[in-house]
């Protein structure tokens, strides 16, 4: 069916079953309701990480996703609070706005490669944070707080999405929303990687000059990819702002940008679902280690170092010999 092997379909089926039915059941049984917030965050960060992974796919190290997540969060917050838009409309607008910014910034900086691109994107995160502090519309260091919960949507009188404010269990609703967006993101990512554009990206990852010499329009492709990547970033950031009901210039900082990149590395750069696994392990692992109190950071970083020491190609590279699932 659709070119998938039955094994892949079963895998996807199990995955969907686990996140939409398994996880709520387990949380219900154990009573750890706080895990909903953690897992929702994982899903949203995984969306942003998917964008970073995509820029890795054309051979660029992107440490600027925090910038686009922050832009997305602010655009959505401003539209909802100041312009009174519905959150569900502001969400794609936030993503598109981030993509437009990415195109404008990407035009000059995508000519850079290697560490130069990595460092300029790192600086970009700082620029956006400082801009958010300086602009009047973003409210400076006070940020935008008390963002209302997403309101309902109805088409021709039929409710499509319920009003989050009237719900008893917003955590569960946010969890499902985040998971649905995450699944859609990764489906889009998988489709993109296995399309003609994906092949062109792989050619760029290996050698840009060579790709260019046989007629690949590299300038166009890298802008498109960077825009898509930032769209994911803006989407994740906007959703995050809505869940936290507040945005501050410090919501996404350089450390977050670095973490997005680490998620991709940890999961493995050669695998579409690498960033998702990486985010889960890094974020959930950090949360689980909370019980160790002041030793949390020490244990966390030690495990991180050990993983990268013995699996330098990412977690999913354990099954590298079997051919991977690219």
């Amino acid at each position: 069916m659709l070119g998938f092997t039955s094994k892949q379909l079963v895998g996807v089926g199990i995955f969907l079953f686990v996140i939409f039915i398994g996880v709520p059941l387990i949380i219900n049984a154990t009573g750890r309701w706080d895990f909903y917030f953690t897992l929702t965050s994982v899903a949203l960060l995984a969306i942003a990480s998917a964008g970073v992974w995509l820029t890795f796919y054309i051979g660029r190290i992107n440490i600027g996703q925090g910038a686009f997540a922050l832009i997305g969060a602010y655009v959505s917050a401003i539209l909802v609070v100041k312009a009174g838009w519905s959150f569900w409309i502001s969400l794609p607008v936030a993503g598109l706005f981030a993509a437009v910014v990415a195109i404008l910034i990407g035009l000059p900086i995508l000519r850079l490669r290697g560490v130069y691109f990595a460092m300029i994107t790192l600086v970009l995160t700082q620029v956006v944070t400082l801009t958010a502090l300086a602009l009047p519309i973003t409210n400076g260091a006070k940020g935008i707080s008390n963002i209302p919960l997403p309101s309902g949507i109805s088409l021709l009188g039929i409710p499509i999405l319920p009003d989050f404010a009237g719900m008893e269990n917003t955590k569960l609703a946010f969890y499902f929303t985040a998971c649905i967006i995450m699944v859609l993101t990764y489906a889009a990512l998988y489709r993109l990687v296995n399309s003609r554009l994906g092949h062109l990206c792989r050619s760029m990852q290996q050698n840009e000059e060579l790709a260019s010499s046989i007629g690949v329009n590299i300038a166009y492709i890298r802008i498109v990819i960077f825009a898509i990547s930032s769209f994911f970033g803006g989407l994740g950031g906007a959703m995050f702002g809505s869940i936290a009901q507040s945005v501050y210039p410090s919501s996404f900082q350089v450390a977050d940008s670095v973490n997005f990149m680490l998620n991709c590395f940890l999961g493995g750069l050669g695998y579409v679902f690498g960033p998702m696994l990486g985010t889960l392990v890094l974020y959930f692992g950090w949360d689980l280690l909370f019980e160790f109190g002041k030793y949390q950071m020490l244990i966390y970083s030690t495990i991180l170092i050990i993983i990268i020491r013995f699996l330098p190609n990412g977690l999913l590279s354990i099954r590298f010999d079997k051919g991977g699932d690219k």
Partner: peptide, 29 residues
Amino acid sequence: PVIKGSAREESTMLLAAGIAFFLDAVILL
């Protein structure tokens, strides 16, 4: 060892960030 074993040399960035976290933790303790 990581430089020798990794397919893409950018993997060292993860290691460097891990070491940064680790040193931060050590300084804190």
